[in-house]
C-alpha cells in the first residue's frame, strides 16, 4: 500500500496566551501512518489535542512543531506553508469555517481550484461541476453566488466545506468534526458526500464525536487520543466499544 501521510513522534506546542513567552505542549509524540484508500478515525474527549493534530498537519502558524517528523508522500511537510501543503493535496474541513465577506462561494472554489491544479479553469465546465456537486449535497444553487459562509447556518457551513472537498479532490481529507452540530438528515448528506469522495487513491482522517457519520463508511483504523497521545488503536470494533462505554475504560492507559 502506498504511504500518504507519515507522522512520527510528533510534538506540537502552542503559544500560551496566559503566560508570557511560554508555550504549552499539546501533542506529546504522535505516530500515525495513513495509506491511500484508507479511512482513519480519531476519537477522544474534548481538549485532547485532536484539532491540534489537524491544524498541525495543515500548517496553522499558531502551532509549532517541537519535535518529530511530518511527511506527505515521502516529503517533509514541516517547512511548507499552508497553501503549499494544500497544493500537495491536503484538505482540511474546518470545525468552524471562516466567514469571508465579499468573496462568493463560486469565486472562492474556482480560485482555489486554479491554485491547486495550476491550470486555468474554464468557467462553464466549472459551473456545471459545481452545480452537480451542490445538488449532491442538497445545497441550493443560489449559494454559489453568496459570500463565503456569511449568514450560513452551522449545517450550511459544513456542507460548504464538503462541497469544496468534492470540487478540489484532495489526496488526503482531514475532517474536523464535520458532523458536529448537524441534524440527522444533514449528517446523512455529509456522510454521503464523504462516501462519494473516498476511493482507493485518496484517504480520509476523520475527527468525530458522533459515530453516525461512520455508519456507511468502511473505517480501517481507529485512534483514541487523550491528553495529546494516542492511548488506544484498533479497528472499527473500537468505535462500538467507546459508543457503549465512553472513554472511561481507557483511563488506566494513561
Amino acid at each position: 500500500m502506498e504511504k500518504l501521510l507519515n507522522i512520527k513522534n510528533l510534538q506540537v506546542t502552542v503559544a500560551d496566551n496566559e503566560a508570557e513567552d511560554a508555550s504549552k505542549e499539546i501533542l506529546k509524540g504522535i505516530d500515525l501512518q495513513v495509506n491511500k484508500g484508507e479511512i482513519h478515525v480519531v476519537l477522544g474527549p474534548n481538549g485532547s489535542g485532536k484539532s491540534t493534530l489537524m491544524n498541525a498537519i495543515m500548517g496553522h502558524p499558531k502551532y509549532e512543531i517541537a519535535g518529530g517528523s511530518l511527511e506527505f508522500e515521502g516529503e517533509d511537510l514541516t517547512e511548507l506553508k499552508t497553501f503549499e501543503r494544500a497544493r500537495k493535496g491536503i484538505f482540511l474541513s474546518f470545525q468552524t469555517p471562516e466567514e469571508i465577506p465579499g468573496i462568493t462561494v463560486e469565486n472562492m472554489i474556482r480560485t482555489a481550484k486554479q491554485a491547486v491544479t495550476g491550470e486555468n479553469i474554464k468557467v462553464i465546465k466549472f459551473r456545471r461541476e459545481l452545480k452537480a456537486a451542490m445538488k449532491e449535497l442538497q445545497m441550493d444553487e443560489s449559494y454559489a453566488q453568496r459570500y463565503m459562509n456569511v449568514g450560513f447556518s452551522g449545517g450550511e457551513k459544513k456542507r460548504n466545506e464538503i462541497l469544496q472537498m468534492l470540487m478540489l479532490q484532495p489526496k488526503l481529507a482531514l475532517l474536523d468534526e464535520t458532523d458536529s452540530g448537524l441534524d440527522v438528515d444533514a449528517i446523512q448528506i455529509v456522510s454521503n458526500g464523504v462516501k462519494k469522495f473516498h476511493n482507493e487513491d485518496n484517504a480520509c482522517l476523520i475527527i468525530t464525536h458522533n459515530t453516525r457519520i461512520l455508519k456507511q463508511l468502511n473505517v480501517d483504523k481507529v485512534h483514541v487520543m487523550m491528553q495529546g497521545k494516542f492511548v488506544a488503536e484498533g479497528g472499527p470494533e473500537l468505535i462500538e466499544k467507546i459508543d457503549k462505554e465512553g472513554f472511561g475504560f481507557l483511563q488506566g492507559a494513561e
Binding site: M58, G59, A86, F91, P97, E98, I100, A112, A115
Partner: peptide
Amino acid sequence: SDEAIFYLMSRGISE
C-alpha cells in the same frame, strides 16, 4: 484576520 488567511491558504491560495 489571521484565521481567514489560514482558511484561504488551506485551500491552496497563496498568502
